[in-house]
Each structure stands twice: as C-alpha cells, then as structure tokens.
C-alpha cells in the first residue's frame, strides 16, 4: 500500500509498535469486495487493537458498511482474511455482536422488543432450549441498560427511530460479546438516543471490550473514538485518533469534498 503522505507513514509505525505485541481484536488483510465487477472495497487492511473504541470513516459510497458486512461474511468477499482475537472469524463468532443499520429490517415484523433482545441469546439457547424467566430477566437488564425497560412488550414498529436503534443495541448487549461492530448507530437518531448509545459504548470500552462503529459524523469523531480507520475504496489511514484524524488524512479521504469551513469545526488534534 502506498501512503498518501510522509506524515502518515510516521504515525502508522508509531501506532503499531506497541499494538504489535498484543493480539488485535480485529485484523483485516487484503479485503476486497465488489458489486458486479466494480470493487467497492479494495485491498483494505486494518488492525483494531483490543479495548479500542474505533470509527470507520469515509465519504458516502466509500465502502464503510460494505467493509463491515464483508468482515462478518454477510456479503461475500473476493479476497481477504479476517482474524478476530487472533483466530479465524469462524472460530470467534461467539465473541462478536453486530448491530445492523436500522433500515435493514421490516419494522412491521410480528415481534416485540423483548423478543428481539432474546434473539441475542439464540446461541446460548440452541435449538432445544426454552426461554426461561432468567433469560427474560437478563433481556430486561439489557433493555434497562439502554433505557428501554418500559417498552419490553411493545411491537417494534411502534417505536421511534432512536428507540429502535437502542433495541438493536440491547440485542447485541445480550450476546455478551467481546467485539461490538455497529453500522451507523447514530444515523437518524435523536440527541438523547445518541447520548444513551455513546454512554453504553463507553461503558463497554471500560469493561475492556472492543467497539467498532461505521461513523459518518466527523464532528464527533474526536469526542467518541480513540482509534480510526479512514477509507475511500482503499485504506487511507489507520491509527489512534490523536495522530491519524488529521487535516492531511481527511483531505486524502474526502478529496475536495471537505471545505475549509468544515475542517475548522472539527477541532482537529494539533
């Protein structure tokens, strides 16, 4: 991979020297995904350290969600390897929880909030298990953590967008995973929900878990995240937000699409 600037090369090596000793929570190499002959993600590599709160950022159509979905095997990849906590993906699925985009499901589906959260326990329950009261109590605790305890028996279509997003997060919490992958969790939610979700994600990080979000709001990157992966078809830069989320890398990622005024509002690290 050729790097767009010298400064980036420097920051990359310094970021990796201490990361190399530990096993990465998520390591991608040579990930290429294409839709009908046109690559959407090309040879992207990433190494998200354990315990990180990481953002995948890039312009619309840069392949952020595609990268996440291909990582999880939801869409096929042309090439590439995924390792989770040092082992191949297939052996680490139980350590991963995924929060898809809200628009990806039909909200008129006949299911209640509690039922959705209980889906997070499907691996634990297996084919033969029955949902018992301790499972329901655990689901209620997960809902409580996202502030949705009062909505357990609602049909999911009766919720607001932000509430739906929180229910998805509660389902992921029920999986008690070590690596959380979220696809645009803050898209189209109200400010209260955004705060609630950020609080939960930060508490996950405090418990030593790793969080990776596809994120579109550049203004909040420095507030919410400590690690970032900037892509636009290819990987542009990756590393700690403090050294990676720079004007040069942003320009390289977004091309001419970021005006000077935008950049000033981002409170970029010096």
């Amino acid at each position: 991979m050729t790097s767009p600037s010298l400064e980036l090369v420097a920051s990359d090596t310094s970021g990796q020297s201490d990361a190399r000793d530990r096993v990465a929570a998520l390591a991608l190499s040579e990930m290429t995904v294409s839709y009908g002959g046109k690559p959407a993600v090309f040879s992207v590599e990433a190494r998200i350290p354990e315990g990180a709160m990481a953002a995948i950022i890039g312009p619309n159509g840069a392949g952020k969600s595609t990268l996440l979905k291909a990582t999880l095997g939801i869409i096929p990849r042309l090439s590439g390897r995924v390792e989770v906590f040092g082992v191949p993906l297939a052996r680490a699925r139980h350590r991963i929880a995924y929060v898809p985009q809200r628009a990806s499901v039909d909200w008129d589906f006949p299911t209640t909030v509690e039922d959705v959260v209980l889906m997070g326990l499907s691996r634990e329950l297996g084919l033969l298990g029955f949902v018992r009261s301790r499972h329901r109590q655990f689901a209620a605790a997960c809902l409580d953590r996202v502030g949705m305890a009062d909505f357990a028996s609602r049909q999911i279509g009766q919720l607001s967008g932000g509430q739906q997003q929180r229910v998805f997060l509660a389902r992921a919490l029920a999986q008690r995973a070590d690596l959380y992958l979220l696809d645009e969790p803050f898209a189209g939610v109200d400010a209260a929900t955004e705060r609630a979700i950020v609080d939960v994600l930060k508490s996950l990080k405090d418990e030593g878990r790793t969080v990776v979000c596809v994120h579109h709001d550049l203004a909040t990157v420095t507030d919410y995240f400590d690690h970032c992966l900037m892509i636009n078809l290819r990987k542009i830069a990756e590393g700690p937000v403090a050294s990676t989320f720079t004007e040069a890398n942003l320009q390289a990622t977004y091309g001419g699409r970021l005006a000077g005024g935008h950049l000033e509002q981002l409170r970029l690290p010096a």
Partner: peptide, 22 residues
C-alpha cells in the same frame, strides 16, 4: 418447532443472523 428460533431470526434480520453464525 425445532428450528423456530433460527428461522425467525433469518426472516426478521438475515444480516444479523449471518453475523451471529446462523
């Protein structure tokens, strides 16, 4: 009866099902 849970998850949210290993 045996497959009711994985079937429900696949119907509701196939992407999530795949990510969970179903």
């Amino acid at each position: 009866l045996l497959f009711r849970r994985p079937l429900t998850i696949v119907c509701f949210d196939p992407g999530y099902a795949e990510a969970t290993g179903i």
